[in-house]
Design a protein around this nucleic acid. Structure first.
Lengths: 326, 326
DNA sequence: TTGTATGCGTTATCAT
DNA sequence: ATGATAACGCATACAA
């Protein structure tokens, strides 16, 4: 490995000057000296050691994100946006996949603490994440869903109750009188909100609501839906996530049902993939770009003093063919 | 931050002993002392600083992967497997998304060098990646596609020529006499091999072969395919990647064409998603688990001395409905 | 078995 | 403007 010392020797100067050159400060360097350093560095292919730099400077220029499943298009989109955003600010994004498992989630968080990330974006599998160690480590956290009161983490999310109400309301306005709701496991973040929202929108509407859960996987959603459709099936299904909606679409096709004529379907994330499903999927759209941008701002621009904040972002209903709109 | 020194003080011992305890060596520690250290560490919620550890030990326990597009299910699957594999070996996986851009790819590689990763898995956007700096940094690299001769990187891949031949041969065996081939950009890794393989399999078969390219994106593939289908369309299309095949499926549906009756489709990755597309997608299947496992072995278990290796893994044709098999 | 002291590569303070 | 040097937190060779 070639170090600042090697560069200094070759340039006939000291390591301090090498550091000044590569950081544009904090001390000025004579143009001639600077050039000698740059030349020496180029010839030696010198790359500053980010570890040493971080150890000395006290920040790593990295942030971490933990998601339940990186193959879920919504989380992949989130990771993609976050990566772009962090890169634009010269930071590295560390991605942790919890596989929907609480212990693995904690293990990633611990790993991030050990690696001294400057901040963490969290999509927890638990509705009441523990966040053990994060506060004592002094690492800021922003969760992309509601957090229980008194939490040390900031929260940046859409209003899931309102979103579910929007979705259910839209299905009702299509005239569908029996609505199915497919969410993730009972204790996963958002499930309760979705149910409340749907209840609100259908109250006094003479609409039958039925609730099912599946893992947040298109494959498991397909399984669950297949048996659902085989019996007394709803006229429309609102899925808490796109991933599950994809599974519903497939199950409907397998069952020989036409979407939206026999069964209307609504997704809950509004990922880009919705535009090319068969048929294109109407969905509640989460503002991924804002989610990413604001997460980064919250993490990187927060003053040490200020506590956790709770921010609600607007959602949108994107109408495509699966609900019967087009 | 709580350091080893804090733990040592509280346990009434030295930092050396704290280190011995946390690393199970290299010196033994008396059970009683050990327990005191463990207790102190627990009470203080001590987490060893991975940066300092890495700086001192000379390895970071991390490996990096650079892929063109993390939202592509094949790369997402790769990342997922790799992450599981590295975690099993107590390493962290750093994921870099090049966005299909050569400069961004290099920028990620540089970032990985600076962060002193122990190894790099590369899926390059270029058929002749430059890998500047990697060799001088002494970081082992394994590419998941063929590399030009004389490269410093190992190569771990299926035989794309044979895979394409398998695919084209299968379509021919279905009796399709006009076959379309949709690959990524001309200079992307594998494109040439695919064309050669298809040519081999169709030689002297009185089969018409037509080649188109698109970005490796389902959306762009949809665009390209739509105009393709509008004119003199092929009876079957073999796509170099699943991502593109998904776009073809959608374009066919949009055009009112039935798959496989009007148009047969074959994918090139064999991701899990193929099982739930409409209709399910037949595809060449890449051995993602082996790709991941062996990459990790190559990077982590290589003796300093041994040079780059070239390994060919077997592929498989998975028959589903899109080609007409079921 | 345990403590002391040095080095890892960088930054930044204090001299010069 | 630049050089010497002390941290940063941990691992380990060397002492005891």
């Amino acid at each position: 490995m070639v170090t600042a010392r090697d560069v200094a020797e070759r340039a006939g100067t000291s390591t301090a000057v090498v550091s000044y050159v590569f950081n544009n400060g904090p001390r000025p360097v004579a143009p001639k000296t600077r050039q000698r350093v740059l030349d020496a560095a180029a010839e030696l292919q010198y790359r500053p050691n980010a570890l040493a730099r971080a150890l000395s400077a006290g920040r790593t220029f990295s942030i971490g994100i933990v998601v339940p499943h990186i193959r879920n298009p919504y989380f992949a989109a989130l990771a993609e946006q976050l990566e772009a955003g962090t890169r634009a600010r010269n930071h590295l994004l560390l991605i942790g996949d919890s596989g929907g498992d609480s212990a693995q989630e904690q293990s990633h968080l611990t790993s991030f603490i050990e690696r001294q990330v400057d901040g963490i974006v969290l999509v927890s599998v638990r509705s009441q994440p523990e966040l053990v160690g994060l506060d004592t480590a002094g690492i800021p956290v922003v969760a992309l869903h509601r957090m229980p009161g008194g939490s040390r983490a900031s929260s940046l999310a859409i209003d899931s109750v309102a979103a579910a109400a929007t979705a259910a309301g839209h299905l009702v306005s299509h005239g569908y009188r029996s609505i199915g709701v497919l969410t993730g496991p009972i204790d996963s973040p958002g499930t309760e909100e979705h149910l409340i929202g749907v209840a609100e929108a259908t109250r006094g509407q003479r609409v039958k609501v039925e609730h099912r859960t599946s893992e947040i996987s298109r494959y498991h959603a397909t399984e669950v839906t297949s048996s659902w459709l085989a019996n007394e099936r709803p006229r429309a299904i609102y899925c808490a996530t796109d991933e599950q909606a994809f599974g519903v679409l497939f199950a409907a096709w397998r069952a020989g049902l036409s979407v939206p004529d026999d069964l209307a379907v609504l997704g809950g994330d509004g990922t880009a993939e919705c535009a090319v499903t068969i048929p294109p999927l109407s969905a509640i759209q989460r503002p991924v770009p804002q989610l990413a941008t604001r997460s980064i701002e919250l993490l990187l621009d927060a003053s040490p003093g200020d506590g956790p904040v709770t921010i609600t972002l607007p959602h949108e209903l994107v109408r495509r063919e699966s609900c019967g709109c087009i």
